[in-house]
Design a protein around this nucleic acid. Structure first.
Length: 568
RNA sequence: GCAUCCGUGGUAUAGUCUGGUUAUUACUUUGGCCUUCCAAGCCAAAAACCCGGGUUCGAAUCCCGGCGGUUGCACCA
């Protein structure tokens, strides 16, 4: 299996190492060795090149520790920390609060685990499957909890995704983009999830790196200005229908996918295109990728549409490496509600609209005598009604002669208290809450797939055939033998190339064949050898990893040759 | 978290059942010799019994606990 050979070399040569090894390790964490860290940085730089440079999105960096309020609003606090218990007989696992509610019909959501334990004990609540005794409750807590400040009374969490940091900055970013939609904000960084039993190496980590973009757009316009450039590009799609009917993946152009309603918007499918392009540039070929749409039950409740980019692996099957979701306005609405901030955009109409509507005007002279101390509240209540509510009151007053307003107490609104007026108003624009399309990349998983699909097993020769754009080390330099001036010249060439900005490995150990083999193994695209002739004719051989072909190049022209190679 | 099998240099392993000398072998790594282009050879060196407790004169070996890993179940917003 390629996975086994690949991970072996990756451990041996310094790509990925298990963390905290000298203390016997902790699963769900991984260390990136020198080559792994370099590869990861290259992948992240490619990502920035595509999204920040080419697409014009803006990168921000938010804290990884977040106060509870943020994650309360996002839904993570309620969805991530559940008290769990388990039947000691049959092993069935339950949410403790749910099984209590089912049995004694009492809301116990805010209680501590000890109290829940006691309730289970006192009420003799047992397993609904087999009647077995239930275990003690443990926290099923996917977020790492911490305290903020010396007193420790402010609860914080390590962020479970980078996205929230962007939503929090919405007002600032909107201003930064001069108040206009659409705009994109990206963030690359660590996210944390305290998985119960992560077992798939770098595929499921407790601390992992995400690269996310949040594209804010007008819900009435999900078109993409560059869509015409990709409308004939083909996509192999594993849509909901394909999965439900278990049929062959459909092969359609972007335009067809949109016309047939398979993908919900131009922006979304353009993101699918970008994602695949990015992966191909990293050396993950199209054949091992597929786009899979989330099934209705699988989709987060707020998502309007969601597609995963999955990569084929020999060990783990199809692995989700990118998720692209239309989150609608869920996040901004939730944060707006929790924070009492208006998170919306004013969209001016092309032409001001004339809107006919009925307004309600309180008759203040009658208010005081009727409502006394409640007068101001009733006034403010009436001022904040929308036209539907005004209609409802109007109808109620006409039919029943009264309308009940429930504030602190029930108040009776009578026809004499208000007047209705039909007016025509000029509306210049409207406030809308933007929708968000979110491509979310799991960098560690992508790195794994880059390793897996760059790995070549040619029997005698096993090596990483990294694309030159992401190779952790670009050039190796060595003397044919450690004799005469060869090591000195090699060292000098190494220094020059490093000055030029290349990553260079200088190696003097072992025979020439061994040096090439070691250099190939970690995917260095070019190897430069200084030999006996070099001393006389000042030229070296440059050997290509993949073809094993050699060019004889004068040292003076070496920079130019290498620049051409890496920038072609 | 449950069940299961497992844990010996950097890697892969012998030894464990049946406790007893300096813990086997190969590769790797480092230094030296040799060598004119794809993991050659020779010499030398470095390097390991997962952690803790127990039994014993003596534990890599037997027992208990912990940690970690494999596989299956459960979990995976």
């Amino acid at each position: 299996m390629n996975h086994d050979k690949m991970t072996n070399i990756s451990r041996k040569r310094g790509f990925l190492w298990p963390s905290f090894e000298i203390y016997s390790g902790v699963s769900g964490f991984t260390d990136y060795g020198p080559l792994g860290a370099a590869l990861k940085n290259n992948i992240m730089q490619r990502w920035r090149k595509q999204y920040v440079v080419r697409e014009g999105f803006s990168e921000i960096e938010a804290p990884t520790v977040m106060p509870k309020e943020v994650l309360k609003a996002s839904g993570h606090v309620d969805n991530f920390t559940d008290p769990m218990c388990k039947c000691t007989e049959c092993g069935e696992v339950y949410r403790a609060d749910h099984i209590i509610e089912e049995n004694i019909n009492k809301d116990v959501e805010s209680l501590e685990n000890e109290e829940l334990d006691k309730i289970i004990e006192d009420n003799n609540i047992r397993c609904s499957e087999c009647g077995g005794k239930l275990s003690k409750i443990w926290d099923y807590n996917l977020m790492f909890k911490t305290q903020i400040g010396a007193k420790g009374n402010k609860v914080g969490y390590m962020r479970p995704e980078t996205a929230q940091g962007i939503f929090i900055l919405f007002k600032r970013m909107l201003r930064y983009f001069r108040g206009k939609l659409p705009f994109g904000v990206v963030q690359l960084g660590k996210a944390y999830r305290n998985e119960i039993s992560p077992r798939q190496g770098v595929i499921r980590l407790r601390e992992f790196t995400q690269a996310e973009a949040e594209i804010f757009l007008n819900p009435n316009n999900k078109k993409h200005p560059k869509f015409h450039t990709i409308e004939n590009v083909k996509f192999r799609l594993c849509s909901q229908e394909v999965q439900i009917n278990e049929t062959e993946e459909i092969n359609v152009t972007a335009k067809e996918a949109l016309d047939k309603g398979i993908v919900s918007s131009e922006v979304l499918i353009y993101q699918l295109y970008l994602a695949r392009k990015f992966l191909e540039e990293l050396g993950i070929p199209e054949e091992v990728l597929r786009f899979r749409q989330h099934l209705p039950g699988e989709m987060a409740h707020y998502a309007l549409d969601c597609w995963d980019v999955e990569c084929k692996t020999d060990k783990y099957g199809w692995v989700e490496i990118i998720g692209i979701a239309d989150r609608g306005n869920y996040d901004l609405t939730a944060h707006s509600k929790e924070s009492n901030e208006e998170l919306n955009v004013y969209i001016p109409y092309d032409e001001p609209k004339l809107v006919k509507k009925t307004i309600i005007k309180p008759n203040m002279a009658k208010f005081g005598p009727s409502f006394k101390q409640y007068s101001p509240k009733v006034k403010s209540y009436l001022d904040n009604l929308n036209s539907e509510e005004i209609q409802e009151i109007k109808t109620s007053l006409e039919n029943d002669g009264k309308y009940i307003i429930s504030l602190d107490t029930d108040l009776e609104l009578l026809p004499e208290h208000v007047n209705f007026e039909d007016v025509e108003e000029e509306v210049k624009g409207e406030k809308i809450i933007p929708h968000v399309i979110e491509p979310s990349f799991g960098i560690d998983r992508i790195l794994y797939c880059v390793l897996l699909h760059s790995f070549v097993d040619e029997g005698e020769k096993e090596y990483f055939k990294f694309k030159k754009e992401v190779a952790p080390i670009q050039i190796s330099v060595f003397p044919l033998q450690n004799k005469k001036e060869m090591p000195e010249i090699s060292q000098k060439i190494t220094n020059t190339l490093r000055e030029e900005g290349y990553t260079v490995d200088y190696n003097v150990s072992g025979s020439i064949g061994k040096k090439y083999a070691k250099s190939d193994e970690i995917g260095i695209p070019l190897a430069i050898t200084v030999d006996f002739d070099t001393i006389d004719d000042k030229s070296v051989t440059v050997r290509n990893r993949d073809t094993e072909e050699q060019d004889r190049i004068s040292i003076d022209e070496l920079n130019e040759y290498i620049n051409n190679y890496f920038n072609e």
